[in-house]
Design a protein around this nucleic acid. Sequence first.
DNA 1: GTTCCTGCAAAATTTTTGCATCAGT
DNA 2: ACTGATGCAAAAATTTTGCAGGAAC
Lengths: 151, 151
Amino acid sequence: MTTDHERTEWVRHADAAIAAAGLRAGGARKAVVDLLARQDCCLSAQEVRDALNDAPGATPGIASVYRALDTLTELHLVHRVDLGDQVAKYEPAYPGGEHHHHAVCRECGTVTPIADTGIEDALHAMAERLRFDVEAHDITLHGRCARCARR
Amino acid sequence: MTTDHERTEWVRHADAAIAAAGLRAGGARKAVVDLLARQDCCLSAQEVRDALNDAPGATPGIASVYRALDTLTELHLVHRVDLGDQVAKYEPAYPGGEHHHHAVCRECGTVTPIADTGIEDALHAMAERLRFDVEAHDITLHGRCARCARR
DNA sequence: GTTCCTGCAAAATTTTTGCATCAGT
DNA sequence: ACTGATGCAAAAATTTTGCAGGAAC
């Protein structure tokens, strides 16, 4: 679980990284960062736009959302995740390297974040063996969640 | 490495599964199956269409290619893979459960198939622990391939 | 004041759908 | 013959780009 402290810390880290890259703190990008910090799992660009439009304050255009997410991804502040539904989703990338993966239920579509140290260890071991400089990795499970399997 | 025998066996298996589902053996779908059997890694729908148009014989429309790939995916004859470039790719799903994952180089874009038993074991162990009925899984590595890292 | 950021609109890309026709069983 | 399969075209959905005005530094 992500703590409130980690969330605010990430926002601060993101702001600093944006400034360090010589970029400015525009309204749309700041709104995207703030919104992402409050999420527990990944959001699509459209979902980000809709959430920002529903809330009071800034109502950025979809293009600005895409551009903000692109920039954040390039700065490694955000992870772009493809869960197989043809829509790119985005979630905060916490600096500690702690991250989770995703289990997608094929019946109800629910996405569950999963964390497992065994997998991470096996991945690191594999990365050692491979002549491939692994910067990021994604694992997606497809199947049926506990609730749907019970029925 | 996939042997010629496995390839022809997969085509036969696919034909049988299509017939068993009460579907017919149309030209476009057959052409897609034959083409996929000859690939070593995943292809996008557009790549499938282009490859079929370049070769003599059937020249299916893009819609038929998408429909064929959808059907094959539903019958678990094909795996749909999302490598983060906003294009769905497809590759044969061999019945034995043997499969590989993908390493994408962020510089040259090359996709390398990777097979690793350690990862598979760790995944199975995790699937046991999770209350999630895992039917399929995807692992994607992003980073720099050996050639690009050397420069 | 310079340069980046933003929003709108238009375009490009990928994928889906409607429909008339063709083909497999 | 019945019903699924195909191809074309049109539509939908997602993402990218151009450009003029506004905002941050």
